[in-house]
Design a protein around this nucleic acid. Structure first.
Lengths: 124, 124
DNA sequence: CTGTATCCTCCAAGATACTG
DNA sequence: CAGTATCTTGGAGGATACAG
């Protein structure tokens, strides 16, 4: 028998309440993974994230910059060169993101099977 | 210097591509945490999730059921009694959710500080 | 190359009221 | 108690075209 739930378990000022916000961004996790090994250029990021539009990538990067997870650096030179890299805060997210991806890789089939099995049983 | 990014790093059929989907649900993570210690009733879940509307909670629970993360059990008896519990698949998510919450607890202040510091520097 | 400017569609999520 | 029904709003995210 579980104990009663703490009403303040998810107090509005508790960080865990806000936890999902950063992951509501569809591309945020993938962008962070792309920066794992070092700085990348805008066009480099678009390679693995093939289905992202320039506009969506721009938005994601802006949100990540605003939250101190990514830094943008404009390198001087004849042709334009902009780099994005993880901040220390961003790097601290890597283990969490990896865990998330590992879970997906390990259990995604189960989830899809369950979804198929429940077709018609559970309303959409 | 990082090596070039693998174009198939996030292949459309790769689970990690779909990873963020489950966390796009604002309440999913919190519901799962509420079920950590055992089955809970609908009204019990509404206690810690004070700001959730009945309708949103219903929707979240339906999605979680559809994906095989939560099961719904209707207990017979004179008065109505419905319980929600984690499936084994749902339980396998717990460590990941905990990691997410721990990260938030540890770094949320940094994120908020960065957000404030970048006010005006980065467009919203 | 690195974005911006528009426009559009879809859906998450809240408010409110109601039901067996 | 455990939801459903309806309506509304906001914002995410894609398409397309254009700019410095």
């Amino acid at each position: 028998m579980p104990t009663p739930l703490d009403p303040d378990m998810f107090d509005p000022v508790c960080p865990s309440t806000l936890m999902p916000l950063r992951f509501a961004d569809k591309w945020a996790g993938m962008v962070i993974r792309c920066l794992e090994q070092g700085p990348r250029r805008f066009s480099e990021l678009r390679v693995p994230l093939r289905s992202v539009s320039a506009q969506s990538l721009t938005t994601s990067l802006r949100h990540l910059r605003r939250d101190g997870i990514v830094v943008r650096t404009e390198r001087p030179g004849p042709e334009r060169h902009v780099e994005y890299a993880l901040t220390p805060l961003g790097q601290s997210m890597l283990p969490v993101i990896e865990a998330l991806c590992a879970w997906s890789a390990d259990h995604w089939d189960e989830l899809l099977d369950a979804r198929e099995a429940s077709a018609g049983q559970v309303r959409t």
